[in-house]
């Protein structure tokens, strides 16, 4: 089932006293539920802009962008925010945990924008999620008291707590050492597999990119398939942490 569909997507920005700058050009991409996609590219290649589009934070200048079979342009601003909150989970390179809030409060944050059970039972749901990523014993810890790996695990718990169907990981191991990075990616893959969510990882690191089943490269705004070692319909391989 196709979750994201991009066809001929371009994104240009208007500059003062200069011709428009094309950041993305003719991007075609289909992402289905359960996909593992990695996107590599140099700085300035348009990764952030693509991430904005995939995360429903921006509109393409031209082309088609559909989420769950619906053109994103047809969403109102509030509807887009709600879909993003419900169906998209972000994981950032710098973790972006909210300072001054405990691990539990951080994981509860996305649930503040939910309704019904998810909102009223947010403490219980967040506790279970932290337990699932192995941090059930650090509920009251502040971010500055957690190690880098623990912080990223909190961030993973936070991104998954509302059960998104799409996880966007922007350099998820960029601030971690190799071993911790592998641990975090193994956890991310495990949790994503458990929830059936699609995982799109944007990274500089070829080793992290290699963990995905579909490999894409973004170069000067053009997205190309570099390798697809695993057929889309084939079962996903299991990722395990590599001991040092």
């Amino acid at each position: 089932m196709t979750l994201l569909h991009l066809a001929g997507v371009t994104r240009t920005v208007q500059l003062v006293d200069a011709p428009p700058l094309t950041i993305l050009s003719g991007v075609d991409l289909d992402v289905a539920v359960g996909d593992r996609v990695s996107i590599v590219g140099r700085s300035g290649s348009g990764k952030s802009t693509l991430l904005n589009l995939l995360g429903l934070l921006d509109n393409p200048t031209t082309g088609v962008l559909e989420f769950d079979g619906r053109p994103v342009k047809s969403f109102s601003s509030a509807e887009r925010d709600r879909v993003r909150g419900r169906d998209v989970g972000f994981i950032f390179q710098q973790f972006n945990l909210l300072q001054g809030r405990t691990a539990l409060e951080n994981v509860m944050t996305p649930l503040l924008y939910a309704q019904g059970k998810q909102f009223w039972q947010r403490a219980r749901i967040a506790t279970e999620m932290l337990d699932r990523v192995g941090l059930g014993h650090r509920l009251g810890a502040m971010p500055d008291k957690l190690s880098g790996g623990e912080q990223q695990r909190v961030a993973i718990a936070r991104s998954l707590v509302r059960g998104p169907r799409l996880i966007l990981a922007d350099e998820p191991t960029g601030a971690l050492d190799l071993e911790t990075g592998a641990d975090v990616m193994a956890l991310l893959d495990e949790v994503a597999t458990g929830s059936g969510a699609a995982l799109i990882t944007i990274t500089h690191d070829p080793a992290i990119a290699a963990l995905a089943s579909r490999h894409l490269r973004l170069d000067h705004g053009v997205l190309t398939v570099t390798d697809s070692s695993v057929e889309p319909d084939a079962p996903q391989h299991q990722l395990v942490a590599v001991p040092a």
Binding site: S77, A78, D81, R84, G85, L98, Y113
Partner: peptide, 16 residues
């Protein structure tokens, strides 16, 4: 600013 960005990414609407 960063905190607001993070909240928006998790579904906080502009109105919220």
């Amino acid at each position: 600013i960063r905190e607001i960005g993070v909240r928006r990414s998790f579904g906080a609407t502009a109105g919220r």
